[in-house]
């Protein structure tokens, strides 16, 4: 299977280890991974700010960049959801692009659900001695149905124990530009999330979307909480030694 990795702009800029972990996992699953250079961002900042023309311009570039691969996989439910659910919606009035947008949408997957649902991965060869809790990022959960897949693979990580938090499916308050446009409301939401995480007593919190993780890590660090924050792919790929937890010193 020829798989194109859509790195996503946040992973590219903040946390390349997540991208490397994704490549590792995809190769383990037997995929040939390529990273098209013409990709940048999925365009959500423009799309969700009402700049439809800007979003379309970026989307067309993405459609071109990912032409010809069997699958396009992103380590983010939010970005994969943009390709899979929203690109076709952007071009309903453009019959020239719509079929190509729909075709890309049908090939686009979030990383962990791709590994489980398409590649049939049942276990991973990783070890991490931690009690962890898992936050269900909104788009992955509600747009793409990512819920059991990460839990199934995490269950096979040697030494790892999952303690579910209450409100795991409640938004953390990131929401893209929302978190800087309405910082007070976002603060309340991420503080609630912080309390739910802390109440589990877990040593680490994992999720599948870097936006949420930056938000959660930022809040935990603001209160000097010693809870590790990591993308689920780093743990599944056994790459926790390659980079310190999100927001921790190098």
């Amino acid at each position: 299977m020829r798989v194109a990795l859509f790195v996503t702009c946040l992973v590219d800029f903040f946390r390349p280890t997540v991208g490397l972990a994704a490549v590792h996992l995809l190769e383990k699953a037997g995929c040939t991974v390529e990273v098209p250079r013409a990709q940048t961002c999925c365009g959500q900042p423009a799309y969700n700010s009402g700049d439809r023309a800007g979003a379309k311009g970026i989307a067309v570039q993405m459609i071109d960049a990912f032409e010809g691969y069997d699958y396009v996989v992103a380590p983010s439910g939010s970005c994969a959801g943009m390709l899979g659910r929203h690109y076709p919606e952007l071009f309903t009035d453009n019959p020239a692009v719509l079929p190509r947008a729909e075709e890309l949408a049908a090939r686009s997957w979030e990383l962990v659900s791709f590994l489980v649902d398409v590649c049939g991965m049942q276990t991973v060869a990783a070890r991490w001695q931690r009690e962890v809790t898992y936050h269900d990022a909104c788009s992955g959960l509600r747009e793409l149905g990512v819920k059991d897949q990460p839990r199934r693979l995490l269950a096979s990580v040697d030494g790892l124990r999952l303690r579910e938090m209450s409100g795991a499916e409640v938004c953390c308050g990131f929401g893209g530009t929302f978190c800087v446009k309405y910082p007070d409301i976002s603060d309340k939401m991420v503080s609630d999330k912080e309390a739910d995480i802390a109440a589990t007593g877990a040593e680490a919190v994992l999720a599948g979307d870097l936006g949420c993780l930056l938000n959660i890590a930022g809040k935990l660090h603001r209160h000097n909480r010693r809870i590790e924050v990591r993308h689920v792919a780093e743990v599944l790929a056994g790459m926790t030694e390659e980079a310190p937890p999100i927001g921790a010193p190098q």
Binding site: V7, V11, D12, F13, F14, R15, P16, T17, G19, L20, V35, R37, C179, V180, K181, P183, D184, S186, D187, V190, L214, N215, A217, G218, K219, H221, R222, A243, P244, I246, G247, A248, P249, Q250
Partner: peptide
């Protein structure tokens, strides 16, 4: 490993720290 304040990022840092990037872009 993180910023408590950062110019142009006050909307973020007013309520939470900003985790620092690892230092190299993926690409």
């Amino acid at each position: 490993g993180r910023f408590r304040t950062l110019p142009l990022a006050s909307g973020w840092t007013v309520v939470r720290d900003l985790p620092a990037p690892e230092g190299r872009s993926f690409h």
